[in-house]
Design a binder for these strands. Structure first.
Length: 518
RNA sequence: GGCCCCGUCGUCUAGCCAGGUUAGGACACGGCCCUUUCAAGGCCGUAGCACGGGUUCAAAUCCCGUCGGGGUCACCA
């Protein structure tokens, strides 16, 4: 039997990081077994523009390399993959459910059901619908309809016995049928509800493994009931623990960004992202610029493989020490049996650590490619000619681990600015250039720079060391003013690399400008 | 509240099923080293079995209970 898994997002306009984790596990499982991963769109409840709300989700999945074998844009043998286009299938299923007595027309109003529920609550007894408005014969139907009532279709759930579910992640889970309600599967207006649509689609698509978040565990019994009534093959279930908020066990939610911002690590990540966005000239990040959404990471230059690696370890582990996985290794090593039962909190710091590790492992040429769009986006370079590429490569090489995410290249914008437009960090300028003897030393060293033969890091370093020794000063007395003069900042990569990358002319002109500003 | 699920360092986790580990790793944190700043790197360290009872020579591991957290109870998905 070929393994077939599916991910079923609603077109909400954004891709939630918890959703990605679910999609990833489905995808890994399918790929590992040489099966198919299917994307199905749960748009039964959507009034708005589905295509537009779906686009960010498809884009996010593609960016992460979670590709689907069947679904939107790629089609497949069981098309359509949009629930809104599959209503004929649902209607047929409801007809069969009605015919075999597993469902019935119910003419109760929402208020009448609610009243029963409240009465039960008041008496502290379990609410079980009286089925007072259940119509199983044409005569009963006619009578209720004569009263002007509209029917919904409800499941006629068993009221005794229990369901034992074998969940790959959670083991055996038992439910008493009596606790289940006669759930509505078709509304009075004829539209269908999730439980029904979901089960019919899974059958139609030949889904063998339903891998989904934990919040679906408690509505599995009603689905199993439909499956059994219709004689469908029951898929294997694997209910994943949800992804929790940083430092809490609550489910991660896109709406609570403000609360998360109180978490130091989370706030730091956001601040890091906003800094990059500002450097790109977009001061208005928009509401999807939020670490709960994958779009956030794409915009500031995270590596998809780092996110995949981190997310894979959120609820799954191979052993007691392996943490670094390539996509290929994950496909090979992943297993649902080793998925954890307890929810895992999203930890921005640890995500960053994975990003850093994956970035360190990247060949410099690839880093250059990653970084170019950011330089272009910030208007620092116009086109990627060979010469520009070479300069960028030099900066990337010298920056080393200081570029943790691609957008960090903008920390080194000063290399790409015209000399007379270099901004100075005022505090750094005052502290270092207005220090005792700083200007005088800088002026003297400027002349050495003008005269030195080789403008390369080793020669420059030798030049500076000699200068320091000759003058009997501390290294910092010249190095700090020099750094501020040529980069505008007190922090940055190695100074000799900086000088060499800028080249003699630009160094001299920047020093002159700084001296003139004193 | 009913039902269901979950509880190992601050966080992610290994160990639990088949009892015996100085309870291991990673992130974070702290210290030291390196150092021209900032990073990176190296070394060292702080820190945990929710609690209470059993069973047993021996319990993180098995059993019972308590407490705590979460999910779900829609004509949402």
């Amino acid at each position: 039997m070929t393994v077939r898994t599916r991910f079923a997002p609603s077109p909400t306009g954004y891709l939630h990081i918890g959703g990605v984790r679910t999609a990833l596990f489905c995808w890994l499982f399918a790929r590992q077994h040489g099966g198919q991963f299917i994307l199905r769109i749960d748009d039964t409840d959507q009034q708005r523009n589905v295509a537009e709300a779906l686009e960010p989700i498809l884009r996010g999945l593609r960016w992460l390399g979670i590709d689907w074998d069947e679904g939107p844009e790629v089609g497949g043998p069981y098309a359509p993959y949009y629930q809104s286009q599959r209503t004929a299938r649902y209607r047929a299923a409801v007809e069969r459910l009605l015919a075999c007595g597993a469902a019935y027309r119910d003419y109760a109003t929402a208020a009448e059901i609610q009243a029963e529920r409240e009465a039960a609550e008041r008496d502290k007894r379990l609410f079980v619908y009286s089925r007072r408005f259940m119509a199983e014969t044409p005569e009963q139907q006619a009578r209720f309809e004569a009263e002007g009532r509209q029917p919904t279709i409800r499941l006629k759930m068993p009221r005794q016995g229990k369901l034992v579910l074998d969940d790959i992640v959670r083991g055996q889970v038992e439910f008493d049928w009596v606790n289940e309600q006669d759930h509505v599967i078709q509304r009075a207006d004829g539209s269908f509800l999730y439980a029904l649509a979901n089960v019919v689609d899974d059958e139609d698509f030949g889904i063998t493994h339903v891998i989904r978040a934990e919040e679906h565990l408690s509505n599995t019994p009603r689905q199993v009931f439909i499956i059994q009534a219709l004689g469908y093959r029951q898929p294997q279930y694997a209910h994943l623990p949800f992804v929790a908020e940083p430092g809490s066990k609550n489910k991660l939610s896109k709406r609570k960004l403000k609360t998360y911002l109180k978490n130091r690590d989370f706030a730091e990540l956001v601040a890091h992202g906003e800094k990059i966005l500002r450097a790109l000239g977009c001061p208005q990040p928009g509401e999807s610029f939020n670490p709960v959404m994958v779009e956030f990471y794409e915009r500031i230059g995270f590596l998809p493989e780092a996110i995949i690696n981190y997310l894979a370890l959120l609820g799954w582990s191979l052993d007691d020490r392996t943490e670094h996985f390539t996509r290929h290794e994950l496909v090979e090593k992943f297993s649902l049996q080793r998925v954890n039962k307890a929810p895992a909190s999203f930890d921005p710091k640890k995500l960053m650590a994975f990003q850093q590790r994956h970035m360190q492992l990247l060949p410099p040429e690839r880093k250059v490619e990653l970084v170019l769009p950011f330089l272009q986006g910030a208007g620092l370079i116009s086109h990627a000619s060979a010469a520009v590429r070479e300069q960028v490569a030099q900066v990337v090489r010298a920056a080393g681990d200081r570029i943790t995410i691609a957008g960090d290249i903008l920390e080194f914008a000063d290399f790409f600015l015209p000399d007379d437009e270099l901004p100075y960090d005022q505090a750094a300028f005052d502290k270092n250039l207005r220090a005792d003897h700083a200007a005088e030393l800088l002026r003297q060293f400027r002349d050495r720079l003008a005269a030195v033969q080789q403008f390369e890091p080793p020669a420059l370093e030798a030049l500076l060391r000699d200068f320091v020794q000759e003058r009997g000063i501390k290294t910092g007395q010249i190095i700090h003013p020099l750094r501020v003069a040529v980069t505008g900042k007190a922090i940055g990569m190695g100074l000799f690399d900086t000088l060499a990358i800028l080249g003699r002319q630009r160094c001299l002109s920047r020093i002159d400008r700084a001296l003139a500003l004193l």
